[in-house]
Amino acid sequence: MMEIGLSHFLVVSTIVFLAGMFCVLTRRNAIGILMGVELILNSANLNYLAFARYSSVGYDGQMFAIFVIMLAAAEAAIGLAIVLGIYQTFHTIDVEATDTLRL
């Protein structure tokens, strides 16, 4: 049985990151893009925590992870508000249809 080490975490986080990236790049739905962004942020969190666990830098990684979570919450709130605004203006949240900052 192979002991789970840093590499595993990094692999998982890479998979999650790529999934998030794929989601962001391919989705045309604005909410889908926001979800992809969440995945990317969480993959980063995984990296922070993994490096914090397997190195001797103390609790810096955990601290950053908490910040990122907080930031993700704020970003989700603002992002969703913007999406709502976009919907009200364009009656769609398809990002390819909303390529201008004006009407």
């Binding site: 962001v24 790049l25 045309r28 990002v95 390819e96 909303t98 390529d99």
Partner: peptide, 13 residues
């Protein structure tokens, strides 16, 4: 400046 978020992201990536 296409305004297309996906395009921006591709460029960034």
């Amino acid at each position: 400046q296409t305004g297309n978020i996906n395009a921006y992201l591709y460029v960034a990536v």
